[in-house]
Write a protein that binds this DNA or RNA. Structure first.
Lengths: 149, 149
DNA sequence: TTATATCATAGTAATACGATATGTTTTATA
DNA sequence: TATAAAACATATCGTATTACTATGATATAA
């Protein structure tokens, strides 16, 4: 039940873009890599997936970099993780395409479906904007404990 | 975000024991393997984990086999999966022992915690007894759709 | 004694993970 | 117009995990 570094880094990358974005400006992976303490070469690979999917836009050459293509409100965590991780289903047998001859009389499958629903419920219910706001609150140094998002 | 065959087979194995158990009797892995269509040698390895943890008891020699040690009510799906899969945490950084220097100012971590809680909520809320009952209903061939468990 | 079962451990092919390494292409700017 | 800075594209690679198979030892009912 693990989420790999690919998906985790992708989320932090998108979050970094959301937090550091400035109108009309673009951010270098090198800077993101430094802030997030992730290999910049590895981040390049990850962002290329986000780029091809149209989640970010890029500017090449000096002063180049990346920026979110849409507003942070328009991305859910689920979108980002599904793109980079592939399916989030806990087992193959709850995937759309999959057919299991046992299926209709398998109680275990009900468990997997419930996990799948629970995970999707969480991830599709959090937007990048909410996460960015939470992050800003955290960085301001909380004077009080609160449970945002 | 995958649950491996080890955990899945372990659950089906325990479910098989729960459904086919008879007072004072014991069930051969060979029979479970045949019913579940799983390699019996692989099942042997998996059940040895359950055995060492005291989840099942074994009888050696001819007419030997396995049986649940406790009543099906006393096992949750979470117990079985944690034993065979290890931690169900989606990322290392939400594990007890783990320390992350970023921790207190990382919004992503809140996402992982929510996933962890959601998954645990589901898995710790289903007992083997409930699952066995659901399986029996399914096998009776449902005349009506209902949402048990 | 024999056959049947659990128990224990080693091996193994295939795949995924988490990168690194090496280079190509684009483009702002000196 | 040359240079350097950035994105972009692949190839490679060590390690670990997965999902088993293989081999054999041990216990025991008949």
């Amino acid at each position: 039940m693990k989420i790999s570094t690919k998906g985790r880094y992708a989320l932090r990358l998108m979050l970094d873009l959301a937090i550091n974005e400035k109108e009309g400006e673009v951010i270098r992976i090198k800077d993101i890599a430094a802030r997030q303490q992730i290999s910049d070469k590895y981040l390049e690979q990850i962002i290329s997936v986000l780029n091809r999917a149209g989640y970010v836009r890029s500017v090449r050459g000096p002063q180049g970099g990346y920026a979110l293509k849409r507003r942070p409100e328009e991305y859910t965590v689920g979108m980002i993780l599904r793109l980079t991780e592939g399916s989030l289903a806990p087992v193959p047998c709850v995937e759309e395409e999959f057919f299991c001859e046992r299926g209709k009389q398998c109680a275990a499958q009900e468990v997997w479906k419930k996990i799948d629903d629970a995970v999707s419920g969480v991830l599709d219910g959090i937007t990048l904007a909410e996460l960015a706001e939470l992050q800003r609150e955290k960085q301001r140094g909380r004077t009080e404990e609160h449970d945002a998002v």
